[in-house]
């Protein structure tokens, strides 16, 4: 079964990405996690995302577009990236989610990928 692991990170984590002191530990953890997913043969795909301020949100209401800078909702934790993994069941997906660096500081959501029949 395929699951999406969604990584929600807080401001501190997003700023650690470019912090001279913290960036090597930050990226080291993510690179190692992605590597472990790959070498264990469960990785389907995945991407990191630029910080939420780089996002743009668009809504069409009555045919009129409304465009807004930033993410669709202003919450403490924002989507920072995702992985799609192929594993036997939710238990195994949760094992992998627990190893995700975002689990320690932010949160990780695990959702099964919808299969269209």
């Amino acid at each position: 079964m395929q699951y999406m692991i969604m990584n929600y990170e807080d401001d501190a984590a997003f700023s650690a990405r470019t912090d001279e002191q913290k960036s090597s530990a930050y990226w080291g953890a993510w690179a190692a996690y992605a590597q472990a997913l790959k070498e264990s043969g469960v990785m389907v795909s995945g991407n990191g995302l630029q910080p939420p301020h780089a996002g743009t949100t668009l809504r069409l209401r009555d045919g009129k577009p409304s465009i807004q800078d930033g993410p669709y909702a202003d919450t403490k934790e924002q989507l920072g990236g995702y992985f799609i993994i192929e594993v036997a069941d939710l238990d195994t997906a949760l094992d992998w989610a627990a190893r995700c660096p975002a689990a320690a500081d932010g949160s990780v959501e695990i959702r099964p990928v919808l299969v269209m029949s």
């Binding site: 190692a32 590597q35 660096p101 500081d105």
Partner: peptide, 16 residues
């Protein structure tokens, strides 16, 4: 590999 498989943040830092 060990870093990528760590659950505990402090253990991860230690290994890094």
């Amino acid at each position: 590999r060990a870093i990528g498989l760590s659950e505990d943040k402090q253990v991860r830092q230690f290994l890094i």
